[in-house]
Amino acid sequence: MCRSIKTLRPPFEEVVTEEDFHAAALQYVRKVSGFRKPAPHNAEAFDRAVEIIAAATAELLGTLEVRGR
């Protein structure tokens, strides 16, 4: 679905920043909502979704165990 979102876990990426989490979350929310930039009345919901997804991404990558490295 979101082919332009890059893999953020090792060995694909050694260092992942908050900006990386935010960029991936933003791409995801844009894709599923169908909006590149939401209308003002949807901006709060859009931005909150990006924050929640970025946090979930950080949590996921923080708990994954990559074997064979």
Score class of each variant (00 low, 15 high):
Leu60Asn: 12
Ala56Leu: 14
Arg3Cys: 08
Phe12Leu: 14
Pro11Leu: 11
Ala55Val: 06
Val15Lys: 14
Asp47Cys: 01
Ala25Val: 11
Pro11Arg: 10
Gly34Ile: 07
Arg3His: 09
Ile52Pro: 00
Val66Lys: 11
Val32Gln: 08
Glu19Met: 05
Val15Asn: 10
Val32Leu: 08
Phe46Asp: 05
Ala56Asp: 14
Ala49Pro: 03
Phe46Met: 04
Leu61Trp: 12
Glu14Ala: 13
Glu19Ser: 10
Val50Asn: 03
Ala58Leu: 04
Cys2Asp: 09
Glu44Ser: 12
Glu19Gln: 12
Pro40Asp: 15
Val29Phe: 03
Ala25Met: 07
Arg9Tyr: 10
Cys2Trp: 01
Val15His: 11
Ser33Trp: 07
Val66Phe: 04
Thr57Asp: 06
Phe46Thr: 08
Gln27Gly: 01
Arg48Val: 06
Val66His: 13
Leu64Thr: 13
His22Trp: 05
Thr7Glu: 11
Val16Arg: 11
Gln27Pro: 00
Val15Tyr: 03
Phe46Gln: 05
Ser33Asn: 06
Ala54His: 03
His22Gln: 14
Glu13Met: 14
Arg67Ile: 02
Leu26Phe: 04
Glu19Ile: 02
Glu44Ile: 11
Ala49Phe: 00
His41Gln: 14
Phe46Ile: 07
Val29His: 04
Glu65Ala: 12
Glu19Arg: 13
Val66Ile: 15
Pro10Ile: 06
Val15Pro: 00
Ala25Ser: 15
Leu26Pro: 01
Phe46Arg: 05
Lys37Gly: 00
Arg3Thr: 09
Asn42Ser: 13
Phe21Leu: 10
Ala45Glu: 12
Gly34Leu: 10
His22Ala: 09
Val50Met: 06
Ala54Lys: 05
Asn42Val: 02
Glu51His: 06
Arg3Val: 04
Leu8Trp: 00
Leu60Asp: 10
Leu26Cys: 05
Val32Phe: 11
Val16His: 10
Ala39Ile: 03
Val66Pro: 01
Arg69Cys: 01
Val32Lys: 09
Gln27Glu: 14
His41Asn: 14
Glu65Arg: 13
Asn42Lys: 15
Ile5Gly: 09
Phe46Leu: 07
Lys37Leu: 10
Glu51Leu: 12
Ala25Ile: 07
Gly34Lys: 08
Leu60Phe: 11
Pro38Phe: 03
Ile52Asn: 11
Val50Asp: 02
Glu14Lys: 12
Gly34His: 08
Tyr28Asn: 04
Ala23Leu: 10
Ala43Asn: 02
Leu64Lys: 12
Phe12Gly: 03
Asp20Arg: 03
Ala39Asn: 06
Ile5Val: 15
Val50Ser: 01
Glu51Cys: 09
Ala49Cys: 09
Ala43Arg: 15
Glu44Arg: 15
Val50Tyr: 05
Cys2Ser: 08
Tyr28Gln: 01
His22Pro: 00
Arg48Pro: 00
Val16Ile: 15
Ala43Leu: 13
Ala23Trp: 00
Leu8Asn: 02
Ala23Val: 07
Leu61Pro: 01
Arg67Thr: 10
